[in-house]
Structure formats: C-alpha cells, structure tokens
Design a protein around this nucleic acid. Structure first.
Lengths: 251, 251
DNA sequence: CGCAATCGGTGATCGGCATCACAGCCTGGC
DNA sequence: GCCAGGCTGTGATGCCGATCACCGATTGCG
C-alpha cells in the first residue's frame, strides 16, 4: 500500500475513468457540494478554489499522507471513502475516523502548522482534490468566509472525535461497542427495506476491531453470535438489521 | 455541584477576591494572553472583546454548562482549571479533557450551532469570562482574523482529543495508561527539582480512573505499586518522578 | 469535639477478552 | 485450474482488571 502513494496517480483529464469511479470534473457542480460544509461557498469563491486545486484518482489502499509528515497540503475527498489511523511504535494502530465524500483530510494539521497527526488511506477507489499548503493559506487569508467554514468543519470533526471517545470509553462491553457501531452505520448509511435496514459493509473484521479496540477474533465471534441470535443478517456486501432489536439485545 | 451553577457568581468588581484567586481585571493585560491562541490578537480587537465579555468567579466544582444544553455562549477560562465530561444514560461518565487557564470552553458547539457535547465543571476556584452567543457571532463576523484564531484553537482541541484516543486505545495495559498520563502531566506542568520532576497532583483516584478508563481501585493499586517500586514519590499535593525511569518501567 | 462523608488502600473472586493455534474459504493471479 | 495469501470461524487457555466487600485515614462541618 505504500507503493500506491508513490505511484503517480492519473489526473482526471476527462478520459476513461480507471478504478471504475465516477469522475467529478468541476467543484462547482460537484454532487458532494450540498453535503459538505466546506463547499457551501459563493460561486465566486468556488471558482477561485477550482483554480488552485488539482484532482487525482487513487486506487483502494492508497496512502494520501503519513503520520508525522509535515503537511504538504489539504486533501478533499471528492468521492470514495478513506480512513485515518494512528499507530504506536509497536506497529499496532487504531482507526481514528472514517471519512466520506466531501470531507477534508489534513485540515487541522494545516491550520495548526503541526505534522499530520494521522495517516490517511483510501478504503475504496477515490477521487481526491489537492490544494498545496501555500495556496491554501493564501486562499484562507483572502477569503474571510472560508475561515468560518473551516472552523465549522473542525467543530464537526471534534464532535465526531468525542463521539468516538464516548463509544470506546463508556460502553460496558465489546459486544455493546460493536452493536453501537453497526447502529451508527445504519443511521448514517442505511437504506430502509422490507426486512429492516440494509447497511453497506465492506470493512474486514480486523479493521472493525481497530475501530472499537477489539481483536479480530472477538469481532468474528460477536458477529457470529449476532447472526445466531438473528439480530443481523449478512448478504453480499450488506448487513440487514432492525435497529430496535439490536439496540435492545446489546445493551 | 449543581447548586453552584445557579448561584449567582460574584463579578470581578475589583473588591476582595473570594475563593482566594487572583483576579484579572482586563483581558488586555491578562497573563494568559501569551499562552493562549485566542488572545493573540490586535490590541484593538482585544479592547472590543473586552467590551462584550463579562467576568465571573466560580468556586471549585461549579458547573459552567451541561451536556445537551443549547449553547448560551462562550466561556473563557481566565484562571483555574476545569474538566469536560461526557456521561452515559447509566450515570457513568468519562473525562474528555482537562482545560487550563486561557482555554475556551464551548467553542465548538457554538460554531457548529449544536448542543453542548460535554459538561464543563471547575476543578479549582476559577475566573471565567463569558461572551453571549449572539455577541460572539457578531464579533466573529466582523473580525475575520478572529475566525482564523478560532480555527487554530479548534485544531488544538482536535489534536488533544486524538492524543487522548491514542492513549486510551493503543496502550497495552491500564498500568501503561496511568504511567503515560503521569508523564504527560510531568511534561506539561512539572517543575524540575533535585529529585526529578515535581507534578502538582490534586485529582482523586476516581477522577483519574475516569480519564484513563479504569476503576478507582485499579488506580489505587497501580499507584501503590509505582510507589513500592520507587517509580514515584508522593508528598503533599505533589508527585515526584523521574520520567525516564517511569517510562522504562511501565512499557 | 465528634460525626458523617469522602477518599484511599487492599484482599478475594470471577468473567470477558486477548492470545495462540489451526482449519475452511474465497479471490485473484499465473 | 491451482496455488498463495488474505479473510473468516471456532476451540482452548490464561490473565488483567472490574466488582464486591471492608476498614482506616482524612476532611469538613455543625
């Protein structure tokens, strides 16, 4: 996966899209604009930002930046998903946050002027816009409204971080943490169907373990148990569940 | 401790200071100005802020705001310490962050326009400046440079939050978490003396447990153990330790 | 002063979860 | 088609830390 970072990613030059993702040519008519704080700006400001950004496509598993690096710039996840991880010297790591399309990566390090505090890696093929540090800082200084958007985005990140801490520290058991994680995903990405809520599910048990602070085996066992107790049903890349049932059963 | 919140706190009107704390009359010559991001602003901006803030003194254990409330305004901890806690329905709670003089409380909720995500309570008698939400928002809009300071402060908070998550999730044992917490305090607040580093130490074992996610008994036992093994020495409100020794002994 | 409340220390017990170990599975690549 | 490598399921074992149960020490307050 380190190899992917050094590989020069293809630019979105309008030709055939590799990795089978949808290419967004222009920030102004980006579908993620509505959802993300950063993109709710005046058309004028958007156009200017369009000038200083450059877009690239990355495969799954590409490393955008590594913990400890001095910030090179701001990454905007136009499409796809990514994870932010922090590691210990012993080689273990935790997943601090999952980021979705429209989110900004590396923002806080750039603002604080400190090294990246986490490593960013794509979980799916992804289109990523990049703004070099210098240009971003100039952009920021000349557009006061952007600074406010930045503050809003940071607030959102902070809240998510606290939610995460709450999940980890306050849950009475690993079983409960896993259930809450599933419920959270269901609330955010689930689609309602005839048998409850369907949630896309493409992470490995190992990765889930590193989100909730549990071992791979424990995640396996708990999911088996949930399945046995009919709290969840797994089909293809989807998990089906009934939120109330799961919540009730898993404290 | 709820009583303290409703009790009308004395204003810093220049008379005798209650609770034995030092009163800072004016933000412009506040000692904390240098240390805190928020206060590094032009004299002009500072004066304006001085106009819209109001200062109050609180005793130890006073609750500034409660998780779930809609934000009333921004709190600035001029002197003293405070803790931010998040609770579960079952009545348990964790300490998300310790705040010191110069820090801002409630900032992210105010920016995001969402309810306070945590409860703020003073750990010592404290002087606290308050800026009502409305006035703060107006102030923010009319002073673009302040928005940047706000973003910087939020970045700092985010980094601390991640550090905390790292501490909680990556440490191999509770022993290690406690050791790291002590080392962190030593690095931030310690003063070097003949027998190593002296760290002020006024939290109860219960509270320490709620920072590192451990029970009161375990904290007691571990501290006893550290003492037996001569890794720390407790005298009055101080802990003496030699960072290298503790680090080496506690993995 | 004396009582109550909080804090700190320690033993005993017990269960949840990490760890080790290994065996089926799927997927992609040659 | 077949092998390799990553993912998943599950058993056995053992340990760390939560919990319960006390008691002594300290603090604060009437």
């Amino acid at each position: 996966m380190e190899a992917a970072a050094s590989r020069n990613p293809l630019t979105s030059s309008g030709s055939a899209a590799p990795y089978g993702i949808q290419v967004v040519e222009n920030c102004v008519d980006c579908g993620a604009r509505q959802k993300t704080l950063f993109c709710r700006m005046s058309a004028e400001t958007m156009r200017e930002m369009n000038m200083i950004r450059q877009t690239a496509l990355y495969p799954q598993g590409a490393v955008l930046f590594v913990e400890g690096e001095t910030p090179r710039g701001l990454f905007i996840l136009c499409s796809g998903e990514a994870k932010l991880t922090a590691g210990s010297q012993q080689g273990e790591s935790i997943i601090l946050r999952l980021a979705e399309s429209g989110e900004l990566l590396g923002l806080s390090s750039l603002i604080a002027g400190s090294p990246y505090a986490a490593t960013a890696e794509t979980l799916t093929p992804a289109q990523v816009a990049f703004i070099p540090a210098r240009k971003f800082q100039r952009f920021l200084r000349s557009h006061p409204d952007v600074a406010l958007r930045v503050a809003e985005h940071l607030s959102m990140e902070l809240h998510k971080s606290w939610e995460q801490a709450r999940l980890l520290a306050l849950a009475p058991s690993t079983r409960s943490k896993l259930a809450q994680l599933l419920l959270e995903w269901a609330a955010e990405h689930g689609t309602v169907d005839e048998e409850g809520v369907a949630v896309p599910f493409h992470m490995t048990h190992e990765e889930i373990g590193r989100i909730i602070g549990a071992s791979r085996e424990t995640v396996s066992r708990l999911l088996s148990d949930f399945r046995r107790r009919r709290l969840i049903r797994v089909k293809g890349g989807l998990v089906h569940l009934v939120p109330e049932e799961l919540r009730a059963a898993a404290l």
